[in-house]
Every structure is written in structure tokens, then in C-alpha cells.
Design a protein around this nucleic acid. Structure first.
Lengths: 115, 115
DNA sequence: TCCCATAGTTCCGAATTTCGGAACTATGGG
DNA sequence: CCCATAGTTCCGAAATTCGGAACTATGGGA
């Protein structure tokens, strides 16, 4: 397995970032990776509410985030470690990712889960 | 023709905004409406580079922007006037729209059109 | 009033994208 | 060498997007 492709930070496109984060599931995954520094792929499953996300869907979510330049993925043994590229992206597009994550946090506060 | 539906600002969702603006054409339309204050729909066609955007596509782009809460549309006679809701959205999600528009502006500077 | 031009919307089939189960591959440990 | 774990790929079904053609709404004449 050759290392996965990651775009150089100067090739990262706003459209790709917005598309990647326009999916709440991916945004939650990215938020978690950023918050925790490093997250192993499958462990993210159990953490996103109680919804079960199929492995194949998760795999493609990670691929979208990686190709958008939002995360860096490397294999360690049998597991995949995912790191946030937020600092790199922040340098290129100042304020973008914090604003997006704040917006999601805000809207989650506004609408607590329908209990 | 009854007035079009516009979401209240407190119902505006980050996912919808990111999805709407993840399309460069829509982002350009929104940027133009915001910059100029008010733009009539079809006049936006000629302004987006030299690419011809079919009327039906334009119509659905405006619809996506409107339903995401980014613009307000009202009919005046036979034409449609579109206003940016950037101030409302800014109040709810501070920094979000400026950061997105800066990011697009930045990436356009980085890659001038392939002449 | 009727007709026309302008401006947008709707309809609908084709192309593209997303979803997710099942099968497959990679890696490390007995 | 075989197995368990972790992810990826494949592929058909479902959902979205695209855009041409037909349709509708509005206002300005004649």
C-alpha cells in the first residue's frame, strides 16, 4: 500500500472544503479529529450520536476529507490515523474553518435533539 | 404568484449554506449580489466570466441560494430582484460568509484563468 | 382587450453523485 | 500459515444535478 494522496496546501480549493463540510456527518468527523488531534477511523463511528455509519460510507467520508485537504491520513499497522490539517488550511484561508465549526456548534445549540 | 418562501434567519442551517456556496457558480452569484447590493437574475448570466449558464440552471441556483437563507428575492414587474442577506446571516454565524468569500477570492488570485 | 416581448419557472430525461451491503485486501499476532 | 482486525473496492439502487423545451407571469403597447 503506497501512501495516500494528499493535496499540497496551496492546491486546496474552497469549493472542495465547503463541499466536504456541507455534510454534517463529515463536519462532525472533522470536528472530532481536530478537537482530539488524532482519531482512528472506525472509532469515529461510535462517537457520532447513536447513528450507525456503515464502514464503506465512513471510508468514503474520510476520502472526501482527505482529498479536500482537511485531514492527513497515515496507516499504522492495521489502523488508520487521521490528523487535522486545520493549521495549514488556516494559513491559506484565514478564519474559514473556525467560522464553519462555530456555525455548526451554534446551530447545534439552537436545536437540541428532539427528546 | 404568491411571495417566495424565505427561511427565518434562526432557521438557517450551516450545512445548507456550505452546500449552496460549494458550487463556484453559486458562490460567484452570491458574491455579486452582495457586492452590488441588488442584482436582477438574468443579468448575472453575462457577468460570470464568458460561460453561458442556461436559464433553467440559473433559476435553480437562485432557488438554492434563497432556500439556504443567503438571498431574498422579490418580483418587481417582470423581473426578479435579489438582495443579499449577508448581514442577517453574519449576525447568526459571525465571520462565516466573509471567510468563505475571502477564501474564494484568495484561490482565484492564486490561479489566474489559464490564458 | 388582446397580443406580444421579456423574465422566470417547471417539466422531464440524461448524466452524475451518493449510499451501503457484500466481497475483497492489507497488516500484525499467534 | 492462519486468523482477526481495519479499511477499501465493487456495484446496483436511490437521490441530485444539469439543461433544453415548453409553460406561466407581468407589463407595455396598439
Amino acid at each position: 500500500m503506497r501512501p495516500l494522496f494528499h493535496p499540497a496546501v496551496e492546491d486546496v480549493q474552497p469549493a472542495a472544503i465547503l463541499h466536504a463540510l456541507s455534510d454534517p456527518t463529515r463536519a462532525a468527523i472533522f470536528a472530532r479529529i481536530t478537537r482530539e488531534g488524532c482519531v482512528e477511523a472506525c472509532s469515529a463511528v461510535s462517537a457520532l450520536g447513536d447513528r450507525v455509519i456503515p464502514k464503506s460510507s465512513l471510508s468514503s467520508h474520510f476520502k472526501v476529507l482527505r482529498e479536500a485537504g482537511l485531514i492527513r491520513c497515515e496507516r499504522h499497522g492495521t489502523e488508520m490515523r487521521n490528523h487535522s490539517r486545520i493549521l495549514e488550511v488556516e494559513a491559506r484561508f484565514p478564519g474559514l474553518l473556525p467560522a464553519i465549526m462555530n456555525a455548526y456548534a451554534r446551530s447545534l445549540n439552537d436545536e437540541p435533539p428532539p427528546s
